[in-house]
């Protein structure tokens, strides 16, 4: 699966997801966000058991605010609509997968 781009209109698909969700808060101009983007993309392709989504913080300041994001990239793992784990900064693939597995 590819990474789902979410905004406040379609955010319910994240909130109501039965799958464990990986949510990537990013901006196009942020170097570490661009570093982690292809990793997030790979995780989405290789792991259909998860819903992988991204939020552009420039376009969606309300969502960034709602999740207390003041540092990007922020990676959030969500389970049943609730935040299960939050990580600040770009992380290696193995570490992101571990976050997902722990909360699956």
């Amino acid at each position: 699966m590819s990474v789902l781009s979410v905004n406040k209109e379609n955010f319910d698909s994240v909130k109501n997801s039965e799958k464990t969700v990986l949510l990537d808060f990013y901006a196009d101009w942020c170097g570490p966000c661009r570093m982690v983007a292809p990793i997030v993309e790979q995780i989405a392709q290789e792991n259909p058991q998860y819903l992988v989504a991204k939020v552009n913080v420039d376009d969606n300041p309300e969502l960034a605010k709602a999740y207390g994001v003041v540092s990007i990239p922020t990676l959030i793992v969500m389970k049943n609509g609730e935040v299960a784990q939050k990580a600040i900064g770009a992380k290696p693939k193995a570490q992101i997968l571990e976050m997902l597995e722990q909360n699956d």
């Binding site: 901006a27 942020c30 570490p32 960034a64 003041v70 540092s71 922020t74 900064g89």
Partner: peptide, 17 residues
């Protein structure tokens, strides 16, 4: 407070301030 008030990348996080 890492990432919620404490930052190491001004270019990444400055715009939130």
């Amino acid at each position: 407070y890492l990432g919620s008030g404490v930052h190491y990348c001004a270019h990444c996080d400055g715009r939130f301030y």
